[in-house]
């Protein structure tokens, strides 16, 4: 039974790691300027975690194989204590894991800081994002470069006034462009402001390596720069109600020239 256990544990460990290593299921290619750092951090973690995982499972398997009774007969060999007792365990764990933690924290927090703790570059394209049950809407400032003020009491899906604009009194609101697809220019920084209309939502574009919750009552800034033109999916990752699974929008990354044309072709909201 011990040998069976050893074989099964080894097989599980090797098959699992092989499927990780072959990238049978893996992240899609990154399309952002910051994503490469996240990917390399993930790869480093994957390698170290993979080694620790295989080492631990193999040690377990080998020991169970070697020190287990066989064929139902009671083992009679003399019992041995692990050389050095618990001390090597403490040292191994503390040193190995400690170094790993140190490295991951030092490198990882830099990566994190570069994405989340830095202000958007000056001149970034400002886009408002509104999340509601169960859709995303995006707002561009329009010709005047100014965003109309958001009035929650004016928000209405029925009039397609998703952002709660008040065009009657607020002239800056009339030319705002509201669309259901996030269109961004390639290689230009984009600064988003995330508004939640009702409950928590989340902004997740896996190709852009970006994820951030929307929190009602807060306007959360988020910025990124997309590099590769194409059409990607934006999905909600924070449980928001019955339609959560179907809450999505498309992100279209266009070349700056195409983006300019697209923006010009858009009708103002009012």
């Amino acid at each position: 039974m011990g040998r069976l256990f050893a074989v099964v544990v080894t097989a599980i460990a090797l098959v699992s790691v092989t499927l990780f290593a072959l990238h049978t299921w893996w992240l899609p290619p990154d399309i952002s300027t910051h994503g490469g750092r996240i990917d390399s951090q993930l790869n480093e973690t994957m390698i170290v975690a993979g080694i620790l995982f295989v080492a631990a499972q193999l040690a377990l398997g080998v020991f169970v194989w070697r020190f287990g009774e066989r064929g139902g007969t009671r083992a009679t060999w003399p019992v041995r204590i692990f050389p050095g007792g618990a001390t090597p365990m403490v040292v191994i764990a503390t040193v190995l894991v400690g170094i790993e933690i140190l490295v991951l924290t030092l490198v990882g927090s830099k990566v994190w800081a570069s994405v989340y703790q830095s202000p958007p570059p000056p001149g970034a394209l400002q886009i408002d994002v509104l999340a509601e049950q169960f859709a995303f809407y995006f707002r561009y400032a329009g010709a005047d470069g100014k965003f109309g003020v958001i009035h929650p009491e004016k928000m209405s899906d029925a009039d397609q006034n998703f952002f709660g604009l008040d065009p009657a009194t607020d002239t800056t609101a009339r030319d705002d462009i509201v669309v259901a697809t996030l269109v961004v220019p390639a290689n230009q920084p984009v600064a988003l402001r995330l508004h939640a209309k009702d409950v928590n939502h989340s902004f997740y574009v896996r190709e852009a390596r970006i994820q951030q919750d929307f929190v009602p009552g807060m306007v959360i800034p988020l910025h990124f720069t997309a590099t590769t033109p194409g059409r990607y999916e934006l999905v909600c990752t924070q449980l928001c109600g019955l339609g959560h699974y179907n809450m999505r929008a498309y992100v279209e990354v266009k070349s700056p020239a195409e983006f300019g044309q697209w923006l010009k072709a858009q009708q103002p909201a009012f």
């Binding site: 039974m1 011990g2 256990f5 631990a56 040690a59 377990l60 020991f63 169970v64 020190f67 287990g68 009774e69 009671r74 083992a75 009679t76 060999w77 019992v79 041995r80 204590i81 692990f82 618990a86 090597p88 365990m89 191994i92 764990a93």
Partner: peptide, 14 residues
Amino acid sequence: LLWIGTIYGARLRF
């Protein structure tokens, strides 16, 4: 590691 180390040198009964 303490658990794995405990198995080392044991007379494991299954």
